[in-house]
Nucleic acid binder design. Sequence first.
DNA 1: TTGTAAGCGTTATCAC
DNA 2: GTGATAACGCTTACAA
Lengths: 352, 352
Amino acid sequence: MKQPKQYSKVTMRDVAAAAGCSTMTVSRALQKDGRVSEKTRKRILKTVKELGYVPDMTAGSLSSMRSGFIALLLPSLNNQHLAEMVHALTDELAKADLQLLIGHTDYLSSKEERLIEMMMRRRPEALVICYDGHTEQAMKLLKSVSVPVIELWEDPDAPIQHTVGFSNFKAAYAMTEALIARGYQAIGFIGEACDDGTRAGARRKGFQAAMTDAGLDAGRVIQHDVMPISIEGAKQACEELLDSFPEIDCIFCVSDPAAFGALSLLQEREIAVPDAIGLCGFGNFEISRFTHPPISTVGVDATVVGRKAAELILRIRNEDNEGEAGDGGQQMSEHLRLKPELMFRRSLKPQP
Amino acid sequence: MKQPKQYSKVTMRDVAAAAGCSTMTVSRALQKDGRVSEKTRKRILKTVKELGYVPDMTAGSLSSMRSGFIALLLPSLNNQHLAEMVHALTDELAKADLQLLIGHTDYLSSKEERLIEMMMRRRPEALVICYDGHTEQAMKLLKSVSVPVIELWEDPDAPIQHTVGFSNFKAAYAMTEALIARGYQAIGFIGEACDDGTRAGARRKGFQAAMTDAGLDAGRVIQHDVMPISIEGAKQACEELLDSFPEIDCIFCVSDPAAFGALSLLQEREIAVPDAIGLCGFGNFEISRFTHPPISTVGVDATVVGRKAAELILRIRNEDNEGEAGDGGQQMSEHLRLKPELMFRRSLKPQP
DNA sequence: TTGTAAGCGTTATCAC
DNA sequence: GTGATAACGCTTACAA
């Protein structure tokens, strides 16, 4: 039989031959807990180096039924939060020799289904996904999938299985309450279009609920771009907002980049922040600390999300190993809730 | 034999049995160019759906000797440029059913070697890497690796193999010349520490060469953080720069986020930009268009880098398939050079 | 167009 | 502690 292309010249068999032992012994010598005599192991590791042997995990995975992959579905990579989270997740998982397979949906649920299938072909040991409104078909897929599913960045009403996140609704509600407590009444909101079932939508609804509950007008809302809103889009939205509701005394933005765009317009129009209008974002991105004035925001630690998700994955994985029998599959699920922090900076007037 | 865990219940064998054919026929029916009668294919696809069969690419890869992976080594994901590039790369590669394996080095060359090994275990069909000064050991590894290597974001003096990028030195040189042409003389530079052999270092050297060549003082340089410089770090660097060289009339920053940090300080000190001091970044990040004033910068299209890299990969891959014999391996290499664009905005005074 | 047989490179299992 | 053997689920090569 002729194969089209050689992966690599050296196989475990070659190492075994050179070291004068069987492939099983080589395999054991390279495992973490392989029971091999110290002498043999040394000899094998030396041979491995000499031959420049690099194990083939494709073969290993197939044989051991463990791919070593964790699939991660993101809306986008171009987002400081998500990038930080990926960073933390990668590093934590690497400690357990797990590797991320990353896919992005571009905030399009249509892409999600295709992506889930693609990922499942690699037989990941867990599926991590940013909550953002799945299609019915995708939900079905996710629920039918035979690996643990972990949703991030939200504390959903109807979780698929495990979750690590916080209630975007409650966080936005709390921030809105705080704005009101500072004396703002005619608060506007800059958000995204088509935000049903998404974190952005939850934030908008949190804002509106808090306004309504306080007896204030919850109607000063501009939903501009389809997700994600760009700085430019937010700038335009801000313009619309000011033109439609000249009485506005504060603007709450669905994200920090959106707030940055809004600030850009306010500066252009020479509207003083916070003296004429207060401003507030969501996410605590780095830039918000360095604008003039710095932008108030809702802070969540993306690194913590990533780390907690990794810990959860490892925990689940170990449990699975213990309950080896592969019995019915206990339908336990963990829900880690983070607490976002309201961060007040000079873009808002101080509490009276 | 008992395996510890079942990947998935349904295998190709099951599909074959249910469809009343051999696994080979199922395999063919699922391939792009599989020669199967339309009737059989339909029957098989129907069975696939009914059983919820998801092919196991681990097995497929092992058998076909094609992993379907492209390894990508990044310094960081938390960078708008790199995120955009990953985005484009992912999408283009997906068209050819290739998937990215992403690793990040945190700008630490020590991590690079470990990472290369990890990646090679998955038998990627190409290795894509952001140029940023490899250690000798890593260079050796990269040169010995039996897959095509593509370096991005630089046009290096001593490329490993293929490259897609531009000369950071020349780009910074050109921008510095332009600054001088605008009448700036006491130009300062905010860069990163330990930038030897990196793109940041090339930019700094380009700046210094242009200054020296113009008979100006190239010594007004502050190298602050180890890479990557943060907004905060740049802000501090700007402070040092102003304190050390009060005569400065313009500041060139190694990146746009650095320029953003510098601007933050200038605003805090109420130093007018560009009237008192000009400002310039590198990279054309989105934020630079929305500051006040907008920041001049050197623009490169990250999406193009990603797309060109993908095209290159596919081209190489096809060539490999044609020259099937696996003969000596023609040592061809392609070098795609992009042209950065100098983008002048209101942070610099106009050309006299 | 379809099927048969033989691996791909590793690890699980069980015997020694 | 070590080895022989049989998978893992798929595709290549070749035969029909």
